[in-house]
Write a protein that binds this DNA or RNA. Structure first.
Length: 664
DNA sequence: TTAGGGTTAG
């Protein structure tokens, strides 16, 4: 039989309909269309479509056969570049594209890049070269795919809808949704006319994103404006977004809309709707849905029944959940641990630890295949019930039984060891994470820092917090506050201040008490300049006794150049400055005559704010007035005297005028 | 002549 490469697609276009996606559903041996006389295409698990090859209308031309054999020669050549050089005259751009896609499908990454470079150098590229190349390259390296896209010389090619869809899809698949949206906006400005595929590509990015629902709806709202109607694929995407955001009413309404538009929901559409009911455990609606689905002839599959189990568990129907689990077992749908895990987790989270353990033991007795999830769930459940010894024991078992652990499992075991106080095991887990190149997440850091604090390894806790912060994780106030307290206790004042700052600059509001707490620590550590910064920014939420303590400490030992600033800030915040603080400040100035200007500034500032020097300070100043200019000092002190007299008169006429309030 | 999606667990 001849091998119809070039002539195949036009005659059997449905084989290449992207909706059926044959390549990913077929085993490798049937991947090559060249070997097919009748192709069997799996359209969905339920439907098998057999496509008979159409009879030839005319024999292939000589040039066609030459190109065809050149393509297979290059694909099969151990040194494809030299074959390419030799045969390049024969080949058209679309033939090179065929080879490029063949390299992509069979994972010949280096060859694909080399071929693409060659095609560029020889000016043999078309739009589909870019869209295919970006698709395959993007599966391995987003940056390389972007590089290819940016290198497109022609501006109009850059807004070709296939090429745009290809690069946008590559960004979405790599979790770069924000860059994807930005690029999309840029493309629109440059003239892209997005189509249904473009919008669906973007929408797919919102499925697993927290709070993706409103943004997805915004995109859906743009569709009519662009003359685009939703198709079955897009309904599938949108329903998945609704389900993963718990929007069951919206999911219902989209299903209704798709029915109204003449689309029949398939198993995936129904599964998403069912999943949306699991958020609230709405088993009534779930049961109704199952009935409807069966009535249209769809047979619930494994995923559907597992999702139904999830609804029952969330709804607290544990008896029916156990029955459904038995049904899953009889149907052969419980050969792995997932449904058991769901039930165990649901039970343990509603305080039914013993029942969860029964399921766990049953599962083990039945020899159900496990990858360690079940153990992990039970370790977490035991920790929640503060049964740390059992949790630790199970963690040990897991370590010996399962070689591969994911981050959640590692965190769960780490937590069990921390709570049981097993330092050696904690270190072993950390080493394991390192070896397996699993990067710690927020939970890992949180568990470790809490543990280090408990073990009084406060500096280690501090180092870990720095690490956590530098990795961009949000910091929890309670944990930071506790660490600040302990660092203060061990006189690690500047470390405490650094924790305070990390928290302060990463959060909009922090608890008022924390400012006061850090202020005490800074005063204690004689870090007056830092203390001044805290006071300056937060004086209004700091108690008067603490401000008083700060003022006193600063006057005695703070930087002399900041003394006036400190007094002004304290006064400006409504704090009444004690007479004795002025006395201390002024004696310091007098002992340092080079600070003459500062003394004069202070003395001039005081009367305007209702402060005057007391008689002993006045005498002290007069004694040294030759250093500061006798005439000037006399003028300033007479102002103090006038003010002090009016204050005396006032306090007599307003007997209720109390300390701490100042008349204006 | 190229581009898109969807269901379950910790």
């Amino acid at each position: 039989m001849e091998t119809p490469v070039l002539g195949f697609e036009p005659r059997c276009p449905h084989l290449f309909n992207t909706n059926s996606r044959p390549s990913s559903s077929l085993p490798a041996s049937t991947l090559s269309v060249r070997t097919l006389t009748a192709a069997t295409v799996v359209k969905s698990p339920a439907t098998v479509v057999v496509v008979a090859e159409a009879p030839r209308t005319k024999p292939h031309s000589k040039s066609f056969l030459t190109r065809k054999s050149a393509i297979s020669e290059i694909e099969q050549s151990p040194d494809f570049l030299s074959s390419l050089q030799r045969l390049s005259r024969v080949l058209k751009v679309q033939d090179l594209n065929v080879i490029l896609r063949d390299f992509g499908i069979s994972g010949r990454w280096q060859d694909l890049i080399q071929l693409f470079d060659w095609m560029q150098q020889h000016g043999k590229v078309s739009d589909s070269t870019y869209s295919s190349c970006i698709k395959f390259v993007g599966a391995k390296s987003v940056s390389k795919a972007l590089e290819i896209y940016q290198s497109i010389p022609d501006e109009s090619t850059k807004t070709n809808v296939y090429i745009c869809n290809s690069i946008l899809s590559c960004l979405v698949k790599n979790g770069k949704l924000d860059s994807c949206i930005n690029l999309f906006d840029q493309m629109k400005r440059d003239g892209l006319k997005p189509d249904v595929v473009t919008y669906n590509t973007l929408l797919a990015g919102f499925i697993k994103v927290k709070n993706g629902f409103p943004k997805a709806m915004e995109l859906v709202g743009e569709l009519p404006h662009n003359g685009i109607k939703m198709d079955g694929v897009m309904y599938g995407t949108v329903l998945a977004i609704c389900a993963s955001n718990g929007r069951c009413e919206e999911a219902e309404s989209f299903v209704q809309q798709m029915k109204d538009e003449g689309h029949s929901p398939n198993m995936y559409h129904y599964s998403s709707l069912l999943n949306s009911y699991s958020w609230k455990g709405d088993y009534k609606k779930a049961d109704e849905l199952m009935t409807e689905m069966k009535s249209v002839g769809l047979v619930p599959n494994k995923v559907m029944m597992t999702t139904l189990l999830k609804v029952y568990i969330k709804g607290g129907l544990f008896e029916r959940s156990r029955e459904l689990l038995s049904e899953l077992e009889s149907a052969g749908y419980a050969e792995n641990e997932m449904p058991y895990c769901m039930l165990m987790d649901g039970l343990s989270k509603t305080g039914k630890l013993e029942e969860a353990m029964t399921i766990f033991d049953d599962m083990k007795a039945k020899g159900v295949k496990s990858d360690g999830y079940a153990n992990s769930i039970m370790i977490a459940a035991l920790c929640r019930s503060k049964r740390f010894e059992e949790a630790k024991q199970l963690a040990r078992d897991s370590e010996t039984t399962y070689e591969k652990c994911d981050l959640v499992m590692l965190n769960t075991m780490l937590c069990a060891y921390c709570r049981a106080g097993e330092m050696e095991s904690v270190m072993r887990m950390m080493k394991k994470m390192d070896e397996q190149a699993v990067s710690p997440d927020y939970n890992t850091f949180h568990i470790l820092i809490k543990y280090f604090i408990k073990e009084k390894l406060h500096l280690l806790a501090y180092q870990t917090l720095l690490d956590m912060h530098s990795k961009g994780h949000r910091l929890e106030e309670e944990l930071c506050s506790s660490l600040i307290y302990h660092l203060g206790k061990i006189r690690a004042h500047s470390e405490a201040f650094s924790v305070y700052n990390m928290l302060r600059y990463s959060k909009r509001t922090i608890c008022k008490d924390l400012h006061e707490k850090i202020l005490h620590i800074l005063i204690h550590g004689k870090l007056f300049k830092d203390a001044y910064v805290v006071v300056k920014d937060n004086a209004k939420v700091i108690s008067q006794p603490t401000l008083k303590r700060f003022c006193k400490a600063f006057m005695v030992s703070g930087n002399i150049n900041l003394v006036n600033d400190v007094l002004k800030v304290l006064h400006g915040s409504g704090h009444k400055i004690d007479q004795v603080q002025f006395e201390i400040a002024i004696s310091r100035y007098i002992s340092q005559p080079d600070k003459k200007e500062l003394l004069l500034q202070l003395l001039q500032w005081m009367p305007g704010q209702g402060y005057v020097v007391d008689s002993s300070t006045r005498n002290l100043i007069l004694k040294q007035s030759h250093l500061f200019g006798r005439q000037l000092i006399a003028e300033i002190l007479s102002k103090h005297h006038i003010v002090s007299r009016t204050m005396v008169v006032r306090s007599r006429s307003e007997p209720k005028f109390s300390r701490g309030q100042r008349g204006k």
